[in-house]
């Protein structure tokens, strides 16, 4: 599904290399976690994959189902099936949540040559999905993320994911700012979306999110590279001993 090979990237404005050769593959249906200390390049990886301005790829490749992601605009990557759940979902006053999601969904469908969804069909679909995520109708009517609590914002991200049905979902520190209950609700939402043809890349500092979203593979990222890969037990090890021992071990 997602293949990243020797990916190097730097900030466009400064001569600062952040990714220094990331290699990673997420097969269809799997959940991979990336853990790592602050400044290791986790969020940068998510931005480079989704096409945010301000980064320059200096070397390496990234592809989704064989398509070169790095040549595509962010909206093309979305239509190709990539989804990034933001660490800090953006507030957009004056644009209704529904309008936003319908615009996004239909733009993706159009880009893929599919029929656009009618207003009625869209409404039916979003109500269904919102219900399973415990999102009330009032929240759908409000402007995108405006006045939402931290938990509501993250649930809204998962709702978008449920509506857009991407193949490759990247969750950038989705657990940040969430209390235990909110985290469980979000994790349940993600788990409900797990499917044989859908993969997840879960970026997190802490092991606790991985108690709820059980990963198949855990990668440790440090200084712009994946330094260790293992099973779920690797996350437990980090939780127990911190990153220090691990990083010392890999040099």
């Amino acid at each position: 599904m997602l293949k990243i090979n020797n990916l190097h990237a730097k900030l466009e404005d400064e001569d600062k290399q952040i990714l220094k050769g990331v290699t990673l593959e997420v097969p269809a249906g799997e959940v991979h976690a990336i853990m790592g200390p602050n400044g290791s390049g986790k969020s940068t990886l998510s931005y480079v994959l989704s096409g945010r301005d301000g980064y320059e790829v200096t070397e390496g490749e990234a592809s989704l189902n064989g398509e070169n992601l790095l040549e595509q605009e962010p909206e093309e990557r979305a239509a190709a099936g990539l989804f990034l759940a933001f660490q800090y979902p953006v507030e957009i006053p004056g644009v209704g949540n529904m309008t936003f999601l319908r615009t996004a969904l239909n733009a993706q469908r159009k880009a893929r040559g599919e029929d656009e969804l009618s207003a009625a069909d869209f409404l039916k679909l979003i109500r269904e999905k919102a219900k399973t995520l415990n999102i009330d109708a009032e929240m759908l009517k409000r402007p995108v993320n405006v006045g939402f609590s931290g938990g509501e914002k993250k649930r809204n991200e998962i709702l978008q994911m449920a509506m857009l049905e991407p193949q490759m979902c990247i969750l950038d520190e989705t657990d940040s700012g969430l209390d235990v209950d909110a985290m469980r609700l979000v994790a349940d939402g993600v788990n409900a979306l797990r499917a044989p043809d859908r993969s997840f890349l879960v970026i997190t500092h802490y092991q606790r999110l991985l108690d709820h979203i059980k990963p198949d593979v855990v990668h440790i990222m440090a200084n712009g590279r994946i330094v260790k890969t293992g099973g779920p037990e690797l996350a437990l090890e980090v939780e127990k001993n911190g990153y220090g021992d691990l990083l010392a071990e890999v040099g």
Partner: peptide
Amino acid sequence: FYLRSRGVPRDRAIVLMVLSFLAD
């Protein structure tokens, strides 16, 4: 970027941002 990452083309995203700006 948020709007584009959801699949909204750039031009359309700018229109939505302008409408958002004018909303008040």
